[in-house]
């Protein structure tokens, strides 16, 4: 054993026969390895403790099920298996971010090359620069901010209304047999109606105002929430329910203590799905009858042949949808950690 055992990698070469000596050398190395490989090295230390003065002390250490006590014990590896398995590349945060950005960057470069090389006429494929200029132009006239704001507002209002209704109706259908029997066939039929089929009816009923658009988006947000919440509440673990009942919970208390918390992770993923659906329904609402918003920008630019603005609107929809989804995704991770 030489002093080269100061890196986590080098520790793997320690001979099991001289494991005790290796532990002495390795002790210096452990303080220098990073946090990620700390735990595995501590495991190695545990192995030494068990194998060295084998018998009572080793067994005692095993019984201490708290990993922190183990890590304060002797440090150092034994045998080839004690090497610190590094965190894999795909588990690292920067790699996830960079990997996710890779394809958009490649597409951007390909787009730039295709549009500037003349392979595709500019009337079919504007260059990224043209799209950027169109965006700046719209922003300077105060339209871009307005369009984004109005579209986002419609999505959020429609999503809030639809998701709230979906939660309530989903709870009724999921918790009550009678509610299921009375409501679910009708709701299943309504869900089968394509989003665009509502548009003429909503325009006739609610005129070309904000209401018709918000209602359409609410319809879009309602169904994922309703479906998933009803299923989640219906399939709460029967054993947990029985345990809750056996300890005297019933009615509202059973709902609030067992059923609702058990459904929380599903509810959050339902909300995430509903938000994505809201963006889809937004464009359907704005395509038909509107004077503002990203959907209007799409139609208007199509009529005027402004392909750069069409590209702009599509990219904005993609970015906005992804951003809101990411925010809900963070919330979802928190909720799953807390409730599951």
């Amino acid at each position: 054993m030489t002093a080269d055992a100061s890196r986590g990698d080098a520790l793997t070469s320690t001979d099991p026969g001289t494991g005790r000596a290796g532990a002495e050398d390795g002790r210096a190395g452990v303080t220098s390895v990073d946090r990620q490989s700390n735990a595995p090295v501590a495991d190695g230390g545990l192995a030494v403790a068990a194998a060295g003065p084998f018998g009572v002390s080793g067994i005692d250490r095993r019984e201490a099920s708290d990993p922190r006590t183990a890590s304060t014990g002797g440090a150092g590896p034994t045998g080839p298996s004690a090497g610190a398995p590094r965190r894999r590349l795909v588990d690292r945060r920067w790699f996830r971010v960079a990997g996710g950005a890779l394809l958009p960057l490649v597409l951007l470069v390909a787009w730039q090359l295709a549009s500037t090389s003349g392979a595709v006429p500019v009337s079919m494929l504007p260059s990224p620069e043209m799209v950027w200029t169109a965006g700046v132009d719209l922003a300077e006239r105060g339209l871009l901010g307005l369009y984004i704001a109005i579209s986002t507002q419609r999505v959020f209002v429609g999503f809030a209304v639809g998701a709230a209704l979906g939660l309530v109706v989903g709870a009724v259908v999921g918790l009550s047999k009678l509610g299921d029997i009375l409501l679910s066939p009708t709701l299943g039929a309504i869900r089968a109606v394509p989003s665009l089929a509502w548009v003429p009816l909503l325009i006739l009923w609610l005129k070309i105002g904000e209401e018709s658009k918000v209602v359409l988006i609410a319809i879009g947000a309602f169904f994922p929430v309703y479906t998933i919440v009803a299923a989640a509440l219906r399939h709460v673990d029967r054993q947990l329910l029985e345990a809750g009942r056996a300890f005297g919970l019933r009615g509202v208390r059973l709902l609030s203590v067992v059923q609702l918390p058990a459904a929380v992770p599903s509810v959050v993923s339902a909300l995430r799905l509903a938000l994505a659906q809201s963006w889809l329904f937004l464009v359907a609402a704005e395509l038909i009858a509107s004077s503002m918003g990203l959907g209007f920008l799409l139609v208007d630019s199509g009529n005027n042949g402004r392909i750069d603005r069409i590209f702009l609107a599509i990219i904005l929809l993609a970015v906005l949808g992804k951003l809101t989804d990411a925010v809900v995704g963070l919330f979802e991770r928190w909720a799953v950690r807390k409730w599951a």
């Binding site: 054993q239 947990l240 029985e242 345990a243 009942r245 056996a246 300890f247 005297g248 019933r250 203590v257 067992v258 918390p261 058990a262 929380v264 807390k338 409730w339 599951a340």
Partner: peptide, 18 residues
């Protein structure tokens, strides 16, 4: 039903995970 005078320990722990 679910008599309050008795308490049951199930075969599985049946703890609420949250």
């Amino acid at each position: 039903d679910y008599d309050a005078r008795s308490a049951i320990g199930f075969q599985e722990p049946r703890l609420l995970p949250w």
